[in-house]
Design a protein around this nucleic acid. Structure first.
Lengths: 171, 171
DNA sequence: GACGATACGGAACGCGCGCCCCGGTTGGCA
DNA sequence: TGCCAACCGGGGCGCGCGTTCCGTATCGTC
């Protein structure tokens, strides 16, 4: 690959990282190109589609988060809640976290699997209500993450969801 | 108003009711016109904008719901939760309920006010966590209602939110 | 320093959709 | 029944945006 090509690729990725984070997936691709100081055609030389660029930007962060779900934990509920908190913290600052669930099937599936594992263990421990499915949780989180960008208090939202997830059994 | 005009107006409203309910606000206006058996121009003779048509369709239902919030109740928490349940039940069947919050500022304000009143009373009674604002609640509900159309179990989602809203004080 | 391959920029295309306009039609009053 | 105003259908415009195409500039090698 030619040197200027590699340089432009990085410029595009930098611009995309910032604009996807602040405006989400709906930011026009021409705006990304403009911020990167290149033409739209150049973007398409490096990424076949807008989705691919988005995935390139989010994949790293999301994959790291998913990987963190595999670490063994003592308290199953604690592990699940920590994961959800991590998601919420990320989404409170970067707008592309919630879009990743919608835009990229791969990332969605990955999240679904990671959440499913944590959820299952917490349910077996009896501390999280048993009638929630992994799909419910993914979708609920997507809605909650989006709500954070509409003027709601992210911390309060998260607390509500976490409390709501707890099993109703009285100890 | 001429007789055929009135008839067409009704046909448009009927088609809009059905399509907004099943597909939400993003349904193309031409599709509504097509289902009504009229041209797009005819729709615009009766409603100045797509938004106005949407509002005409949803206003009645939402206003009725808002009005029901004014009925005096014994149990403040019960009143709030009943209202939220009503919203969820409606949204589980009609897709335009959640869009109404986004599309129509009037309806959003109305909902905000109604929810704010119920919330305030429930918070005074101490049964609902005090750090939630009316805006938080509107936005949270919007996210939850949208989530219902993404494959989540509406009943479970609602229960999670209701439980999460309850005050943490141990009686 | 010249030449071929590679990459660039941005104009242009296609598409979807909200909205408007106009030639033709229809309803209801005299 | 005839006439005019009201109304209708649907083709078309404007716009935003993802994507592509191509003439031009740039890189790196011989």
């Amino acid at each position: 690959m030619r040197a200027d090509a590699a340089r432009n690729r990085e410029k595009v990725l930098d611009a995309a990282r910032e604009l996807f984070a602040t405006q989400g997936f709906e930011v026009p691709l021409d705006e990304i190109a403009g911020k990167a100081g290149v033409g739209p055609g150049t973007v398409y030389r490096h990424f076949p589609t807008k989705q691919a660029l988005f995935q390139a930007v989010t994949e790293t962060r999301v994959s790291a988060m998913i990987a963190s779900a595999d670490e063994p934990a003592e308290d199953a509920q604690q592990a699940l809640f920590a994961f959800l908190t991590k998601m919420a913290d990320e989404a409170a600052v970067k707008r592309d976290m919630s879009d990743a669930i919608t835009v990229s099937p791969e990332l969605r599936k990955g999240l679904h699997k990671a959440l499913g594992g944590l959820l299952h263990k917490a349910q077996e421990a009896g501390t999280v209500r048993a009638d929630v499915t992994a799909t419910d949780l993914v979708v609920l989180m997507k809605g909650m993450l989006q709500s954070m960008h509409d003027g709601a208090n992210p911390a309060v939202l998260l607390e509500i969801v976490l409390k709501g997830l707890q099993s109703s059994r009285k100890p």
